[in-house]
Nucleic acid binder design. Sequence first.
DNA 1: TACTCAAATGTAATCCGTTACATTTTTACA
DNA 2: TGTAAAAATGTAACGGATTACATTTGAGTA
Lengths: 353, 353
Amino acid sequence: MLSVTFSNKQQWEKRLSTIREVADMAGVSVATVSRTLQQPDRVSPKTRVRVQEAIDHLGYKPNLMAVKFRSGKTQVLVALVPTVANVFFARVIKGMQEAAASQGYSLLLMNTMGDDDIERNCAKLVDTSQADGVIQLRAFNPFATDQFQSEALLPMVNACEIVDGARFPTVTLDNRAAAKAMTEHLISLGHRRIAMVKGPQSSPLTRDRLAGYEDALKAAGLSIDDSLLCAGDFTLSSGYRAATTLLDLPERPTAIFCENDEMAMGAMRKVRETGLCIPEDISIAGFDNIAFSAYAEPPLTTIAQPAEEFGETAVNLLIDVLNGKTKHAIKVILPFEVITRQSTGPAPDNANR
Amino acid sequence: MLSVTFSNKQQWEKRLSTIREVADMAGVSVATVSRTLQQPDRVSPKTRVRVQEAIDHLGYKPNLMAVKFRSGKTQVLVALVPTVANVFFARVIKGMQEAAASQGYSLLLMNTMGDDDIERNCAKLVDTSQADGVIQLRAFNPFATDQFQSEALLPMVNACEIVDGARFPTVTLDNRAAAKAMTEHLISLGHRRIAMVKGPQSSPLTRDRLAGYEDALKAAGLSIDDSLLCAGDFTLSSGYRAATTLLDLPERPTAIFCENDEMAMGAMRKVRETGLCIPEDISIAGFDNIAFSAYAEPPLTTIAQPAEEFGETAVNLLIDVLNGKTKHAIKVILPFEVITRQSTGPAPDNANR
DNA sequence: TACTCAAATGTAATCCGTTACATTTTTACA
DNA sequence: TGTAAAAATGTAACGGATTACATTTGAGTA
């Protein structure tokens, strides 16, 4: 690590002028200055000009910290994101950020790594008047107490992975139906041995997607083989590992449905390394439709989720809650779409018994 | 968009108790309460207990907005990120977030889309006492005025893509040397027609990487062929488009060096669609070493950048500046590494003239 | 010119902790 | 027991903007 230094005299001594200095310079009271800024029509034109000149001259900028302190509104929303460095969440963040900005709110982004304590701590920002509300992207209520498990004690909305029976607004999609649709797609291609690479044990997402997978198998009269269920954690490497296990099975699956695209791409890597072809020998499907999926080899069949819309909707709901517009625990369900690409194809002949 | 509602009585009437209420209940002065919280040893044990009981009973939480307002320190850092939904930046954000949190700062994340005006507006957060400093991930000084172009008028550091001749701390890597190293790698494999897919025209990153590419070609006595230089914008699709152009050339390149991994993956997709093999027919190299690169088909040769460290270093530098520790415009240069994988290989025989 | 009413402006309280300084209580030792 | 010093606690100013309420200015009218 090299380092070069320049000489520099950074003496920004934070000499911000106050409303009082403006008032003095303009020869008016602070109230008049404030009014000039807030309700110009309540100030006579001559005075207005004089005040404006003083403001320009001093380069006065109102101390918004003081404003927020006095008003009790921070115009800040906290986003609890399990992993910022995750492609899907990055899109959700984008949606949140834009929606917040367009309504004059700032987004305080927290990379919580899915840790309960960290999230509880972040939620305290609201307790301590540093933020107006919380957006939680994980199925955990950071405000939960012994008495109130599914109820938010402070303004909060929950998006993407939601808490069961939540008593606060939520935004999600029907993961069960989506997983069922994808599994049906695979079944329709003749697959009978369909593996699933799951997400973290504790995640409701995993439970719902698994349920959808089972729904489809049952509906098709297929049995559920536990050896085809593999644990993962939504990372590329866990997909790779899961595929390693699955390909080693005495009777290997002809299709692998991964609960997200990263794991699917990890699995694809392993499959190709083994010398098998996708989809001729084995089909692979993912979930999320991240940008890379369309460029994978072969392009990945997956479920598209409106990620940005998740963020946008969550922010709008939260602001509604803050403004007292949303009084109920609304549950918004966004649509999904099965995106069929080349990573899924007809089951190999010898697999049709 | 379905929506279901639950009945709910969310009446969090924001009735936060104040230090004065605690003082009254404990029968002490506000100063004593404050001391109980700040310097417990300056309060007698009995009083301390009494105050603590009052605090617990009332559920008192200090209004940190008031604290920040009075102290003039917000403990908030603003991060100006061109695209949050970018794999590389997501890693940088992770680094910033963790470093900030560990020092008691919050990160206000701004998705600026590389827009000068948006960035200038965000920088105003510091002007208006809503944040203590700014971290800029793009080569643009949001505080620039006619007189001060390369000098920050308020606390700021610049990371990743840095402003030329900046008079504020910067964190970067030697993009020119890195691009030269990668180009040399390709030359050493026998490649003579090496294309480059550039980033946005205006980006210093592009200029430096291009310079490194030219350095290597010149050093090897190779001429620079403008038809092998292709514009891109760091997205998957622009890589795809660039490859389309390059493969259509009468004498097509035997290697394509992309200025980031996303474009490289876009290019790879196009190459494979054309029926060519990587690296037998054409080698592909990227820049950034995002997680997906190792799982690409074939795994991508690229330049590893310590993304998280960029964020971490930037935050630490900024906090130093805020504490008056760093008085100079330090320039930190982080190391890079050429990661050789299977997307680059010997140039095809018929290409060696 | 006197008087009314509206418009313009000013005064001062308020938001909630922190902390310098003042005052009271306790401790310790002669 | 007296007194100095230390410990504990209290008082009140402060930070910057907003705003209810009070006061002044000015216009309009009889």
